[in-house]
Amino acid sequence: VDIPWVVKPEEKMKFDTIFDSLGPVGGMLTGDKVKPVLLNSKLPVDILGRVWELSDLNRDGMLDKDEFSVAMYLVYRALEGEPVPMSLPPPLVPPSKR
């Protein structure tokens, strides 16, 4: 499936910078490192819980760089007033995980 990822290269660079600043271990960020960042958005916790569900694609309780970009993308869109989807639309699935 050759759909372009909705996370644009310049956004991905910004999200990667945030990811690296949070001190990933083995290329992964644990939930307790990501949680305060998402809480900073001031979005309701149930929305953030859904953002996590959608972005932790392999359900391992940690986010890698691509999963973190999905989470940040959803948070930024939610802050712009767009609803967080109930399931991840294909263009939001990172190309590395299709």
Partner: peptide, 13 residues
């Protein structure tokens, strides 16, 4: 820490 039956991988539940 997590509610029974909740996802133990989701830090927001």
């Amino acid at each position: 820490q997590y509610p029974a039956g909740g996802s133990s991988t989701n830090p927001f539940l």
